[in-house]
């Protein structure tokens, strides 16, 4: 599923990184705790979070996440957007809450990163 299709599914708006919308997303995870993201995140992850500060982008960069979707209509400040543009990390914002946003993506066939999740084909 491409980031563009995800954008439509989640009624999201693009904050930055329009030119990355063709990126294929193969796994996703949602958390507001950056230490959890660092512990369980995998390269290529689509990160859903309610945390809009600089650390959301830093964390995404460190784990090599493909994109960030901020939930509940949240938007980061200019400094965070600037860093994301520098690091080539597209940022989107969805009006949906975390649960609904993750649920829709999971229903659309995008697996998570839980070690107990057998349907996680992204590990192959």
């Amino acid at each position: 599923m491409t980031l563009k299709e995800i954008k439509e599914l989640l009624q999201a708006e693009v904050i930055c990184g329009d030119h990355h919308l063709g990126t294929e997303i193969i796994l996703a995870g949602g958390s507001d705790l950056m230490s959890d993201v660092l512990a369980f995140g995998k390269p290529g992850l689509l990160l859903l979070t309610g945390l809009t500060n600089l650390q959301s982008v830093r964390t995404a960069d460190i784990i090599e996440a493909k994109a960030i979707i901020y939930v509940r209509g949240k938007k980061p400040d200019d400094q965070t957007i600037k860093l994301a543009a520098e690091k080539n990390i597209p940022l989107l914002s969805t009006p949906l809450m975390m649960y609904e946003a993750c649920g829709l993506l999971y229903q659309a066939g995008i697996p998570g990163v839980s070690p107990a999740n057998n349907s996680n084909k992204a590990n192959d």
């Binding site: 230490s35 959890d36 512990a39 650390q55 959301s56």
Partner: peptide
């Protein structure tokens, strides 16, 4: 509020 302080830092470093 910064997204840290969940008690995962040092265990993450060790891991």
């Amino acid at each position: 509020e910064m997204g840290f302080g969940a008690g995962m830092g040092l265990p993450n470093i060790k891991k």
